[in-house]
């Protein structure tokens, strides 16, 4: 058993920071919240669209960044996928890499492309598993700003991280 008797509720504009040492179940909590893993006991109630940033990039390595993101944006059932992708690439300072194949990206750049997919989805609920992994300080600051924007527009953010992230007024769970 990784964890038990954990309960939380997040309303519009809320953020939850899940912290803890390696192997305590941060990622598992995110996967339960994403509906990928069934909890042994308990339940998850979700209202709204979810966007997941997991450890695996889930991007076609041989495609260009913009095309790989475009595939996912077209699955979102929201209008103007190309415009959403372009805006997300701008927000993460990736516009210069739009035509570069995913396989040539560094770890941090790949992470940012994963974040761009979350931003482009315009989902209500962001589930971020170690979003700051491999990011430089400028990118971490950009990530914190994006989370603030998401909360300001009434979204919900659930972050599992072992690195310090500045999220004003966020709830915190230590596993």
């Amino acid at each position: 058993m990784l964890f038990e008797q954990r309960s939380f509720a997040l309303a519009a504009g809320d953020a939850l920071l899940v912290t803890g040492a390696n192997g305590t179940g941060k990622s598992s909590l995110i996967r339960v919240a994403a509906g990928l893993l069934a909890p042994v006991a308990g339940h998850v109630t979700v209202e709204g669209q979810r966007a997941l940033l997991a450890e695996a990039a889930a991007l076609d390595a041989e495609r260009a960044v913009a095309a790989a993101l475009g595939f996912w944006a077209r699955l979102d059932a929201r209008p103007a996928p190309d415009a959403r992708v372009a805006a997300a690439l701008d927000a993460l300072d990736l516009a210069a890499l739009a035509d570069v194949p995913v396989r040539l990206l560094s770890t941090g750049q790949r992470r940012r492309v994963g974040l761009a997919r979350v931003v482009a989805s315009e989902a209500d609920i962001w589930l971020l598993d170690e979003p700051a992994n491999g990011l430089d300080t400028a990118a971490v600051a950009r990530l914190e700003a994006l989370i603030a924007v998401q909360r300001a527009r009434g979204g919900v953010v659930l972050v599992a991280t072992h690195q310090p992230l500045a999220l004003a007024g966020a709830q915190e769970i230590r596993l």
């Binding site: 997941l52 889930a58 589930l127």
Partner: peptide, 14 residues
């Protein structure tokens, strides 16, 4: 499955 693509499909409720 390895690249997490199927996870992303599932998280979207597909």
């Amino acid at each position: 499955l390895d690249s997490g693509t199927l996870d992303q499909f599932a998280a979207r409720g597909m």
